[in-house]
Design a protein around this nucleic acid. Structure first.
Lengths: 176, 176
DNA sequence: TCCTGAATAGTCAAAATTGACTATTCAGGA
DNA sequence: TCCTGAATAGTCAATTTTGACTATTCAGGA
């Protein structure tokens, strides 16, 4: 449901057509969600059928006609309801990368360490990337700050795992 | 792909049939992924067609026949490849809850604070829940530790957001 | 003994999501 | 002028995921 909330929240500030919405999300809200274009159109259709938004077909110059969506009063009510719901609950998250943590013993310790070092580098790159993006857009600070906070925590976690493995493997070496 | 890695990793330790796998994931690996039963069957079918696992139909007593899957050598090779891939990369995560952070101004400040307090309580409950689960299974520590680490970081984040809003709204009150 | 409800094993149609595609417009250089 | 490649706007078939269902077995009480 949080994808619909996102679309409603954007349309609430400004009416838009599908392509515009999808672009906007890609450019400014990629940290929140990875809503793809066809999914956006699918959800817009659905919400129009539910009466949360209404479509108006417009034509500029001799460009092909576009469907511009805007919130209805029902849509505004739904937006508020969904926002309250989301704010009040905690939605658990699964880290896809944890699958590999569960099978760390499937590889030699030294190789694992090398691969984790690569992951760590990728994580740092990601941190720099999003800092750069935020520097020149400046908007939606909370989402950006959250992601940064999270990435920093992940860095701490990775370092714990790595140093844990290091002591473990040096103990093994000492034993051998 | 990480769902296939998960299935391969489990089958690698012990051959199983679909229902068994799905149960095992629900009971022990729910922190990693939320793979549903029909998805598991779907992926098993696919992997069987790709030759990563092979099925053997068995019958115990007069229970209905079951398909028991085991890794093939090709499956073992794929497991290793996928594991290396996953370990070496960082996969970015979107927090679905961040959508509501982007629209915090859609509600009165005081209500937002109340709702966030609810979310904080839910987060604490979750922390206790998974600690309890882990206490009596004791397995898969890394995944558990990661999740705990993450929840603690989220708690810190939520507290930052809440206290930020509090100062903001008290400034407003002072101004009024 | 018979019945009920839980556990086991899996299937299926419907819903959601995606990659790849079409078609038009427009800006700028050859 | 004409051509090429990017930007705009959206669609579609195929894949993936899910909620809800079926069907059998079994344990325990009435």
């Amino acid at each position: 449901m949080e994808k619909k909330l996102l679309l409603l929240g954007i349309l609430r500030r400004q009416e838009m057509h599908g392509y515009q919405l999808s672009e906007f999300i890609d450019n400014n809200l990629s940290l929140c969600t990875d809503l793809k274009k066809p999914t956006a159109y699918y959800l817009l259709d659905q919400m129009a059928r539910e009466g949360w938004i209404s479509a108006e077909t417009t034509q500029e110059g001799n460009r092909p006609p576009r469907r511009v969506y805007q919130l209805t009063p029902a849509g505004e009510a739904t937006f508020q309801r969904l926002l309250r719901e989301q704010l009040a609950q905690y939605s658990p998250i699964n880290f896809p990368g944890d699958v590999s943590l569960a099978f760390l013993d499937g590889l030699p310790a030294q190789e694992t360490l090398n691969l984790l070092a690569e992951q760590r580098a990728a994580l740092l790159t990601r941190l720099e990337e999003i800092s750069a993006i935020h520097a020149h857009t400046g908007s939606l600070s909370l989402v950006f700050l959250h992601q940064t906070h999270h990435l920093q925590a992940e860095l701490g976690w990775l370092d714990e795992v790595i140093s844990g493995l290091q002591t473990q493997s040096s103990v093994h070496q000492a034993e051998a």
